[in-house]
Structures are given as structure tokens and as C-alpha cells.
Computed example of a mutant assay.
Amino acid sequence: MMVTLRMHDLVAVPDMSPLDIDVAVGATVALIARPRPATAVARVVAGLAAPVTGRILVGGRDVTDLPPLRRRIGYVPAGGALLPHLTVGRNISYGQRRRRWVRDVAEGWAAALVDRLELAPTLGLRPHLLSEAQRFRVALARAMACLPEVLVVDLPAPVDGVFLPDLLQRTAPPDAPGVTVLLCSAEEEVLTGVTERVPLVDDVPPGPVQPAARA
């Protein structure tokens, strides 16, 4: 199995059980955890916080100690975290401006994402004028505009009008096997269509959880 994202003995916050997760190329794996530890793991993988212990590898590269811009990981934080003073168009292109190599290889990709996610009518609007589903799609477009190897989605609650597998299919770059995704959530409505699931030990929420198929 070709693995894009590997977490080895990863502890994001004290007293959390270590995580060992392998996400294959183009696969989506859900980490089943309550919002607080799920967000902690998402932030550590994205590079916004340091782990207590453990390693993170992307495509065989150890990125544990690298800053976010060098990890090749896209991140959709809970709530989207769009910049309120920027228009939709500038929010989407924000990450590209900070990654010079992307501008050389991804010309036109942001425009394709706008078209695929039906965001063209919103490009001149500020985030507060958007619906919750539109804000999520903008955050997804911003993350994917940088052509990441891995996408981390922190989605603690369902968003009306958002079916993640469909959106991921729309945002897959051309001639690629699909986006490698770590989805952090415990809500069954969010997890619909995601069959590979790994519960965070000692933090399994109430209700049935389908275990991931482990390689």
C-alpha cells in the first residue's frame, strides 16, 4: 500500500492515547474523536502546534518539525477561519501568494476550483455575506488551491448542504489518484460516505463507530 500520510505514536495533547494511522494515496480516513482532541490532532498534523510525542510523515518525508508552509498539507479548520477583511477571491488565493512554487505550477487551478465548487458569484463578497455551506467551500478551495499532498479537514458538526465525499471528488487535481484526506469528526452525518474510520482510544463518542480497514 502506498501511504501519503503516516502518524506514528502521535500524541497531540497530554493524556491522549498515541495514534498510529496510515492514509493511503487518494484515500479518506476519519479520526473519530470529540471536538477538542480532534482539533488538537488536526492542528498538530497541519503544523500549527507541536506534538507532545510522535512523528508525522507525508509521502515518506518527516514533516514533524517543519513549518506549515513546507509540509504540503492543506487545512480546513473548524468554522473555515476565513479572513473577514478579504473577499472570497482573495481568501482563496491567500495561500498561493505565500507559496511561490505553487504560483509556478498551479496557474488556473484556483479558477478551476472556483468553477467546480460553484463559487464564481461570491468572489467579490466578504465571508459574512455567505451561507455556512459557501464558507466551507471557500475554505476548501483555499486549502486545495495550494495543491497539497494531504488535506486535513476539522469538521466537528455537520454543515447543511455539505456532503464531503462529493466536494473532495470535485477538488481532486486532474491526472491525480484523488486527494489524501484526514477527516476529524465524531458526527455520523459528517462521516456519511467515509468507510475507513479510526476511533481515538479513550475518547470514543457515544453511538456506533465503524472501525477502519487497517492494512
Rank of each mutant, 00 (worst) to 15 (best):
77 P>Q: 03
118 E>A: 15
69 L>I: 15
94 Y>G: 09
114 V>G: 06
51 P>T: 01
73 I>T: 00
94 Y>D: 10
162 V>K: 05
84 P>L: 09
144 M>T: 07
72 R>W: 08
56 I>V: 07
76 V>Y: 03
174 P>G: 13
176 A>N: 09
120 A>V: 06
87 T>M: 06
98 R>F: 14
119 L>T: 03
65 D>A: 15
140 L>A: 10
55 R>Y: 06
172 A>M: 04
120 A>H: 11
82 L>Y: 00
97 R>H: 15
101 W>A: 13
113 L>S: 08
171 T>W: 08
71 R>D: 00
183 L>M: 10
100 R>E: 12
148 P>V: 07
143 A>D: 01
173 P>N: 00
98 R>L: 15
89 G>Y: 02
137 R>N: 04
78 A>Q: 11
176 A>G: 10
48 L>I: 00
127 P>S: 05
116 R>F: 10
57 L>C: 13
111 A>E: 13
130 L>M: 11
142 R>M: 08
165 P>E: 01
54 G>Y: 00
88 V>D: 04
71 R>P: 02
153 V>D: 02
75 Y>R: 02
136 F>S: 02
121 P>M: 05
155 L>V: 07
156 P>E: 01
122 T>S: 13
96 Q>L: 15
81 A>R: 10
142 R>H: 08
125 L>G: 12
139 A>D: 03
171 T>D: 09
160 D>P: 13
83 L>D: 05
82 L>V: 00
126 R>E: 11
115 D>G: 06
144 M>H: 02
110 A>T: 05
123 L>A: 03
127 P>F: 03
120 A>C: 04
83 L>Q: 07
94 Y>Q: 10
163 F>W: 13
101 W>T: 14
86 L>T: 03
115 D>K: 12
161 G>P: 08
101 W>F: 13
120 A>R: 15
158 P>K: 09
135 R>K: 14
115 D>H: 10
80 G>V: 05
133 A>K: 08
110 A>K: 11
162 V>D: 05
49 A>N: 02
93 S>I: 14
92 I>C: 10
87 T>I: 08
177 P>L: 07
58 V>H: 01
180 T>W: 01
163 F>E: 12
70 R>C: 07
